[in-house]
Nucleic acid binder design. Structure first.
Lengths: 229, 229
DNA sequence: TCAAAAGTGTTAACCATACACCCATGC
DNA sequence: GCATGGGTGTATGGTTAACACTTTTGA
């Protein structure tokens, strides 16, 4: 950082890879573009960073404006800046990924109303710009993160069954897990608390609901505990 | 990404946290600033991204220009964009971290000639801008990375002793490791090949030199092997 | 009463840890 | 011959992995 700035400035945007979990699958929230370039193509929600806002703030704002989601888990992912990634002019984008709780049907309705839709990872449409590459980086990050930090809970409602949690890990990590061993391990950490509620409206024996004990996790973390699935 | 760009554009820079390993310690390469702001303060090597170069290319170019290092391990770290992080105007910086092999004394001499110097992490000077925060993020990343990917070797010469490797891990992870268990584990991975050379000019029994087998690692990786210390 | 998923323990294999002495070399 | 670090094996405890049946509930 040697001189004052005399070079042409690239435009700066933020984009967000929004993950949800529903019916045993990881889903991705995409926006259909109205304008050129890539009119009609699906793309990541995102937009330009304003002069006086931080990158995190820009990502949250765009997410709220384009998808209606606020109060989600949001983390910076990677910055993409290949010249030519936008055909109009040079645009550098700071990519984020978000984990949202799809349990609440109202938010799903709110986003359904717009030009936004949830897609299974297995059949994503062609995406605008280099957004497919961004999604791939986000997936790799999610896979790595979920094993060593308790972020998986950000994809479930506050109260969940152990089977839901197991299916979440199976979907993200693309493995199958043994039910007994999974329960032993996750309960052994002492991070889940049994609620006095059980599932409702299921056509079989209702499962107990648990919740994640965030304060306890932070406390254990200070003592050197490391979450690991 | 909805409209063409009408907003004020932040300036865009790259900065690099350059790690080395010498005499059992992790070192950091810093540049002393000549101009305001923060004239005289030590700072990360870095500079403005040019109109037609990728972010990676910009980081490599700045590293080469300011420190003389090329062909180093370089990875994007995080993008820092708080308004106000540069007192002059809004500057967003894409931070990288680099791992360099300090074994070669010629490169050390080359950088010594300039306003660059190596510092122990324990006694870093006050840094310009938010560079101290960037260093902290880089350290956390390095600690995490070194355990799950064989990047530690990027800090050692091509041929190294097992004790050097152990000391490297001890320095990065801030732990002490058991010599026998460390050797068992690292040799058990089958990623090190014994060379027919031994240390020279040491005042005690000379240790065998090993080298990291990169092709073998990539091959094992495809079969699902995961490096782990 | 049937279908569907919940819930539960034991064993065997493997892996991580703790630990101490002799060896080779240069001075 | 002494100081310095190089090099080596075993025993124990803990962790992971494999595995199947009974229970509850609603339809």
């Amino acid at each position: 950082m040697a001189t004052t700035y005399r070079h042409a400035r690239p435009a700066l945007t933020v984009d967000a890879v929004v993950f949800g979990f529903d019916e045993g699958d990881i889903k991705l929230l995409l926006i259909q573009r109205g304008m050129k370039p890539f009119a009609g193509r699906w793309a990541l929600p995102g937009g330009f960073v304003r002069a006086d806002e931080s990158l995190d703030a820009a990502a949250r704002r765009e997410l709220r404006e384009e998808t209606g989601f606020s109060r989600v888990y949001l983390e910076q992912l990677y910055t993409f800046g290949e010249p030519g990634r936008d055909p109009r002019e040079r645009v550098v984008t700071v990519a984020y990924y978000a984990l949202v709780k799809l349990g609440d049907h109202r938010v799903r309705a709110a986003t359904d109303a717009r030009n936004a839709a949830w897609f299974c990872l297995r059949d994503l449409p062609r995406l605008a710009f280099d957004h497919r590459a961004i999604v791939d980086v986000a997936l790799r990050r999610l896979k790595g993160k979920v094993r060593y930090e308790p972020v998986g809970f950000e994809l479930l409602r506050a109260k969940f069954t152990l089977t839901q949690l197991q299916h979440l890990y199976e979907a993200v990590l693309e493995v199958t897990l043994d039910k007994r061993n999974f329960r032993k391990k996750i309960l052994g950490m002492g991070l889940l608390v049994e609620t006095d509620e059980i599932e409702r409206d299921v056509a079989h024996r209702a499962a107990r609901l648990y919740r994640f004990d965030g304060p306890r996790y932070r406390q254990l973390q200070k003592k050197g505990f490391n979450f690991e699935i």
